[in-house]
């Protein structure tokens, strides 16, 4: 988050100040890449497309930093859906419908103590698509429930439910035996 200076920085970027723009970029590109990793290995490509679209639309954006983040992630999601559609066309798969979020089931054994960011995202990818998206938009993008609902085109209630279930499922993933790490620690004592 940029915080109190956000408005100034955004105004600078809008006027073509490249340092100001770089600040916006550096603030959001990492979470953007993590979120877009849900779509597979096209994250870099889709993030680059997202930023081009964002730059072109800079003049049309109005709002505070939360709205800005929601806007960027909304744009990213559209680009990701496009990319998934392209990919599907290229592969000529027979399936008619799919989310852009490609979930994985074959994650290696989870060593949660020293998780890398990529491994954590891979864990999230094992959740159902909506839950995975909600978790990343809440945790990684830091968006409030209402903004996540806007990005996904869902109701806030649905987002809350998905977040709750997603986090619970994630907790089960890192403690497959149904025993949380805390409980395991307690048991060892």
């Amino acid at each position: 988050m940029i915080g109190a200076e956000f408005e100034t920085v955004l105004a600078g970027a809008r006027n073509g100040d490249e340092v100001a723009f770089a600040r916006l970029w550096r603030d959001l590109n990492p979470p953007l890449l993590r979120y877009l990793s849900l779509g597979g290995d096209t994250a870099d490509e889709v993030a680059a497309e997202t930023w081009l679209t964002v730059v072109r639309g800079l003049d049309t954006f109005t709002g505070d930093e939360t709205a800005w983040r929601a806007w960027v992630f909304t744009t990213a999601r559209r680009r990701a859906v496009d990319a998934a559609r392209r990919r599907g066309r290229e592969a000529r798969f027979g399936r008619q419908h799919a989310e852009w979020v490609a979930t994985v089931r074959d994650c290696a054994d989870d060593v949660v103590d020293a998780l890398t960011t990529q491994e954590a995202v891979a864990l999230v990818r094992r959740l159902p698509p909506l839950q995975a998206e909600v978790v990343l938009l809440r945790v990684v993008a830091g968006l409030p429930v209402s903004e996540v609902a806007d990005v996904l085109g869902r109701t806030p209630g649905a987002v809350r439910v998905a977040a709750h279930r997603g986090l619970r499922a994630l907790a089960d993933l890192v403690a497959p035996a149904g025993v949380t790490l805390a409980e395991a620690a307690t048991l060892r004592e």
């Binding site: 859906v81 990919r87 599907g88 592969a91």
Partner: peptide, 8 residues
């Protein structure tokens, strides 16, 4: 959100 594409 939902599309007719098919991600691999």
């Amino acid at each position: 959100a939902t599309t007719t594409g098919t991600p691999v």
